[in-house]
Structure formats: structure tokens, C-alpha cells
Amino acid sequence: MSKDAFCNMISVSEPGPGDGGNTGSWRVVRPVIDTEKCIPAKTGKPSCFNCWLYCPDAVVTKTIPPTIDYTYCKGCGICAEECPAGAISMVPEASFTKEEK
């Protein structure tokens, strides 16, 4: 047997998103950004980005306006809590389900 043949089955993981699946399905409430209130969106200048900084799941972008990847956002609400402008509201997922219907 060749040397490589002896080491072809070990637990070696490859990096990729979504090990936990589409964790967006964990959400009960969804963060929605009001661009009228969001500071970088309102001013058009790079500023604030607290929502991006504090996100434990790296699903908010550091862009103007910031965007949220709902595929993976778990809906914790830290972004809403830390937004100094109160621009992010947590909206029950149920209302979106109705919309999608």
C-alpha cells in the first residue's frame, strides 16, 4: 500500500460557511434597518457601523447602507440594541412568512 493510502480517512475539516446549516432559520425576530435613521446611510459617509462591529455572526456588512445576510443571521438583536440611532427594529418573522405567502 502507498503511504497516502494509509491516511485517507481522518477528521480534517475544510473551511466553508454554513456548517450549522442556514442558521437564518433560527430567527424568531428579524433585524430590519431603517435607512432613514441609519447614520452612514443618512449621511452617505462611512461612520458608526456598530451593527457590523458587534455582530457575533459576521452577517452585517460594513457598507453604506449596511446589509444583513438573512441566510445566516440568527436574529439575536445585538445590532438593534447597539444602534445609536435606533435604526434597526426587530420584526417578528411571522409577519414575513405572511408576506411571502
Partner: peptide, 28 residues
């Protein structure tokens, strides 16, 4: 500062940490 902090992410989203996990912020 927030503005000078790199936006390169080494931790991927979609991981199995609990919602609102403090470790997520620390690790990231």
C-alpha cells in the same frame, strides 16, 4: 477605530454558536 478595523472576516457565518453568543464577537 471602527472605521480603521479591517472588514476581512476569518470566521465564517452559519456556524453553530448560540444566537447572541459573546464568543462570536470575541472570536471574530
Amino acid at each position: 477605530t471602527i472605521l480603521s478595523l479591517t472588514d476581512e472576516e476569518i470566521m465564517n457565518p452559519g456556524n453553530r454558536a448560540c444566537s447572541g453568543c459573546g464568543l462570536g464577537i470575541v472570536y471574530r
